[in-house]
């Protein structure tokens, strides 16, 4: 029971400090799940993201469910997921009850101006930490550059990138095995 409660609390902390989409929570996942508790490795977290991106549902929730399941099966998945959404439910309910134009408050806008800068720095730092374990050779660098450019500048769906890169990986590794 204590571990389930810990799952709930850790994911509530992650949900409560995710600003933006699912990718913005990566730095906190790294800290809480990978480095502090060893619940998953860096590679596993990346794999879960890839799966979470091309399966139905919200990426942040999918990743939480995956880690929860890995640790404690279905009950673990439920506790991690409930933890992830708990802060949203509380915060949004409070805002919806008491503030009609929350986003128009100057103090909120300024705070978010600062937070967004920190989010960029934190994600960059997370990428640097994951680089060695994810990008193994020059083909990896090439796949990284292509996927960054087509998502950032050409606005092609990330799902296309995920599927295409998996196929590319299978073909490239298959050829290497054939040559050996």
């Amino acid at each position: 029971m204590r571990e389930l409660l810990e799952l709930f609390i850790v994911f509530a902390r992650i949900g409560g400090f995710t600003f933006g989409g699912g990718y913005a929570m990566l730095p906190i996942i790294q800290e809480e799940v990978v480095e502090k508790r060893g619940w998953a490795t860096e590679e596993e977290v990346i794999d879960y993201y890839a799966i979470g991106q091309c399966t139905p549902g919200i990426i942040a929730v999918n990743t939480a469910t995956f880690i929860g399941y890995k640790l404690r099966g279905i009950v673990g998945a439920i506790f991690a997921t409930l933890g992830m959404v708990f802060p949203s439910v509380v915060i949004i309910t409070i805002i919806a009850t008491f503030f009609t134009h929350f986003q128009d408050y100057k103090v909120v806008q300024h705070a978010f101006g600062g937070i967004r800068v920190a989010v960029v720095a934190l994600i960059l730092n997370a990428i640097v930490k994951m680089w060695d374990k994810s990008v193994k050779d020059y083909i990896g660098v090439l796949i990284f550059v292509i996927s960054f450019v087509i998502v950032a500048f050409m606005h092609i769906s990330p799902i296309v990138v995920i599927v295409a890169s998996a196929i590319a990986g299978i073909i490239i590794q298959g050829r290497r095995a054939g040559i050996k």
Partner: peptide, 27 residues
């Protein structure tokens, strides 16, 4: 494993693109 060999750098690219979206409106 071969699929993930291609996937992992692509996911890093997606994460980079997400950071870039935020940088566009903040930095």
């Amino acid at each position: 494993q071969a699929g993930f060999y291609g996937l992992r750098p692509a996911v890093i690219g997606l994460i980079g693109a997400a950071a870039f979206e935020v940088a566009k409106v903040s930095l």
